[in-house]
């Protein structure tokens, strides 16, 4: 069963074709890697998936429901959560608040609930609070709950971003270069963390330049170059694929 279906999607920026007739299917419960040289269009694909850029042509389906060109907050509510290449935490808010904000689309309390604190609003607050604390505990971040997110170390900020995304109970988790800037030990820990999420049945799509991580973590790898998909398959196959090697290293003379 494919959870996400990207169907012949094209995105142009003026004269530049950033994503060119790109199709891909992501199966439920898998970890898929999206790789390619710099400027290949990987992050643009993520931004199309999450509604940050409008799609020029093609369609995107989440569980057979079209999410093409929907507003980002609707796509998030539909179950797509993401992290960013350059960490975008709510720096001046506490670690706990960051995670509680991540759960926004799972709540419904509005102005009335905020001001009058009726039963439903109080119960919802309690549920969100408990869930956020549990997620922080599982990620080993509980001791930093009242810390400002901006005061955490780089590695912990990356992890908090994932936890924040998880708070929305996503069906698809999109990670944009989760290991960027991490030292080998942090990368190891991150891989263990992602594996644990996978073991729980979460579908994950990630962009990554660390090939060791991609090859050992992903069941499927999609390779992009110049906005197009040039290869797709299990990691062993991708490793030896001619087109991929050429894209990364250049053609043999």
């Amino acid at each position: 069963m494919s959870l996400l279906n990207i169907d012949r999607v094209t995105k142009r920026f003026g004269g530049l074709i950033a994503v060119d007739n790109f199709s891909a299917r992501i199966d439920e419960g898998t970890i898929t890697g999206l790789i390619g040289p710099n400027g290949a269009g990987k992050t643009t694909v993520f931004n199309l998936l999450t509604g940050i850029y409008p799609v020029d042509e093609g369609d995107i389906f989440l569980d057979n429901q079209a999410i093409t060109n929907q507003a980002p907050h609707r796509i998030a509510a539909a179950g797509v959560a993401r992290t960013f290449q350059n960490i975008r935490l709510f720096k001046e808010l506490s670690v706990l608040d960051n995670v509680r904000i991540g759960a926004h689309s799972r709540g419904r309390a509005g102005i009335f609930g905020a001001i009058f604190r009726n039963g439903a609003a109080r119960r919802e607050e309690a549920t969100i609070h408990a869930k956020a604390l549990q997620l922080l505990q599982e990620a080993g971040l509980a001791e930093y709950s009242s810390e400002l997110a901006g005061n955490l170390s780089y590695g912990l900020q990356r992890k908090l971003e994932i936890v924040r995304a998880l708070a929305g109970e996503p069906r698809l988790l999109i990670l944009d270069e989760p290991a960027a800037g991490m030292n080998p030990r942090e990368t190891e820990e991150l891989m263990a963390f992602v594996r644990r999420l996978h073991d729980r049945g979460l579908t994950i799509l990630l962009i990554e330049h660390d090939m060791k991580l991609v090859m050992s973590l992903c069941q499927r790898v999609i390779v992009m170059d110049h906005g197009q998909k040039i290869a797709e398959g299990p990691p062993e196959e991708i490793r030896t694929n001619r087109a991929v090697v050429e894209a990364y290293l250049g053609k043999e003379a």
Binding site: I52, H73, A76, A77, F84, F90, E92, H104
Partner: peptide, 17 residues
Amino acid sequence: RALQAIREDELAAKSMG
């Protein structure tokens, strides 16, 4: 919290729903 998220980072806030 939603209001403060918007102040901190509007794009991230949108992505949180």
